[in-house]
Simulated scan of single mutants.
Amino acid sequence: MRPEVMQTMIDMVDKYVRIEEFNKLLKECVYEKGSEQTGWGEITRYAHLMLGGSSPNLDRTAAITEMIMLAADIADDLQDQDNKDKLWMQYRQEYVINGVLALLMGAVAESAELTNGKGGPVTLTREISRILLESLNGQFADLEQNVTTEQQYIAMVYQKSGSLIHLACYMGYAELGLDSKAAGTMKEIAYYSGIIAQLENDLKDLLRFDMKNDILRKKRTLPILYLLSAEESFPYMKQYYEGKLTQSDLLAKKQECIDYINDSGCMEYSKIIQTLHRQKAAELLESLTTVSPWREKFQQVTLITA
């Protein structure tokens, strides 16, 4: 995170939170997030610049984006209980929930002070709320763990992850007054980028056998759906998902499970889906009138290539 963006977030905390311990908690969360290679504010920045923007408020806008995404990250960790080493997981959960609300409300309050080319601050805050609610719908679908098909998975990720990238993009172009076609194209790019990013996370979590492992948590990501549909050579995973095996039973077959994953083709298949979405997003980006080098930088933070 850029130092100037993090400082703006700290200033926002001081502006809205006056109880010393609460202020300290939120600042620690901001510093923790600032130490990561977070790209949310950069998406906002590059979306703005590549579409011809030159706002003097860009750091502030990027900071609002980062505040919202920090709240979303904390809420996600509270729900999943799989990131125990995070600073915010060391505090009492009721304090942290209060912190999530404070970060969101502070971001909304700051956004209300910004204006855009189509409707002013009311339009901006309304659209932020609408996009966030779309993401929350996807998050709830993920928590229900009722996804059983690739189509359901894609629809869930479009909402959950795609909406957040859409929000980061929207924060960048909101004041530019894009026509409906260009705004729709940016939304499509964001949703394709959400699939790319989520698949990257799914693949990283597939082979790590700790609390972040999606199989142990019985999540149904795209590579896991692939594994569950072709389980003849390793039926134990499906049995675990059906409750016929315990976690200890599955962990006793850890190496067999890893071998099955590596040999199954699920990772290759997921990479193909990633590539297809990357190509679609790149084609859409080419159709827009954009400014270099900001378009290329925007691609780097949204269309993951590693």
Score class of each variant (00 low, 15 high):
residue 2 R to I: 10
residue 5 V to I: 15
residue 8 T to I: 04
residue 11 D to V: 01
residue 11 D to G: 14
residue 12 M to E: 07
residue 13 V to N: 05
residue 16 Y to D: 11
residue 22 F to I: 12
residue 24 K to N: 03
residue 30 V to P: 02
residue 36 E to G: 06
residue 39 G to H: 04
residue 40 W to A: 11
residue 41 G to P: 04
residue 42 E to D: 14
residue 43 I to N: 00
residue 44 T to H: 05
residue 45 R to Q: 09
residue 47 A to F: 01
residue 48 H to A: 01
residue 53 G to I: 00
residue 54 S to L: 06
residue 55 S to A: 10
residue 55 S to K: 02
residue 58 L to K: 01
residue 60 R to A: 09
residue 62 A to H: 03
residue 64 I to V: 07
residue 71 A to N: 08
residue 75 A to D: 10
residue 77 D to C: 09
residue 80 D to M: 11
residue 85 D to I: 08
residue 90 Q to D: 04
residue 91 Y to L: 10
residue 93 Q to Y: 05
residue 100 V to Y: 00
residue 108 V to E: 08
residue 113 E to C: 13
residue 116 N to A: 10
residue 118 K to M: 12
residue 119 G to Q: 12
residue 120 G to W: 13
residue 124 L to F: 09
residue 130 R to N: 12
residue 131 I to Q: 02
residue 132 L to M: 15
residue 135 S to N: 08
residue 141 A to D: 12
residue 143 L to A: 10
residue 148 T to S: 14
residue 151 Q to V: 14
residue 152 Q to R: 08
residue 152 Q to W: 01
residue 157 V to Q: 05
residue 157 V to I: 15
residue 167 L to Y: 13
residue 167 L to K: 10
residue 176 L to I: 03
residue 178 L to R: 12
residue 179 D to N: 14
residue 179 D to M: 10
residue 180 S to W: 08
residue 185 T to W: 06
residue 185 T to H: 03
residue 193 S to V: 05
residue 194 G to W: 00
residue 197 A to Y: 13
residue 199 L to D: 09
residue 203 L to C: 14
residue 215 I to A: 06
residue 216 L to D: 10
residue 220 R to T: 11
residue 221 T to L: 03
residue 225 L to Q: 01
residue 234 F to A: 01
residue 234 F to Y: 01
residue 235 P to I: 00
residue 238 K to H: 12
residue 238 K to V: 00
residue 238 K to Q: 11
residue 239 Q to E: 11
residue 248 S to L: 11
residue 256 E to G: 06
residue 258 I to K: 06
residue 258 I to V: 02
residue 261 I to Q: 01
residue 263 D to M: 06
residue 266 C to R: 02
residue 266 C to A: 15
residue 267 M to F: 01
residue 269 Y to M: 14
residue 269 Y to F: 14
residue 272 I to M: 09
residue 277 H to T: 07
residue 278 R to Q: 13
residue 282 A to D: 15
residue 284 L to C: 14
residue 290 T to G: 06
residue 296 E to I: 01
residue 296 E to W: 02
residue 298 F to D: 03
residue 298 F to V: 08
residue 300 Q to A: 15
residue 301 V to L: 04
residue 301 V to S: 07
residue 302 T to A: 13
residue 306 A to G: 13
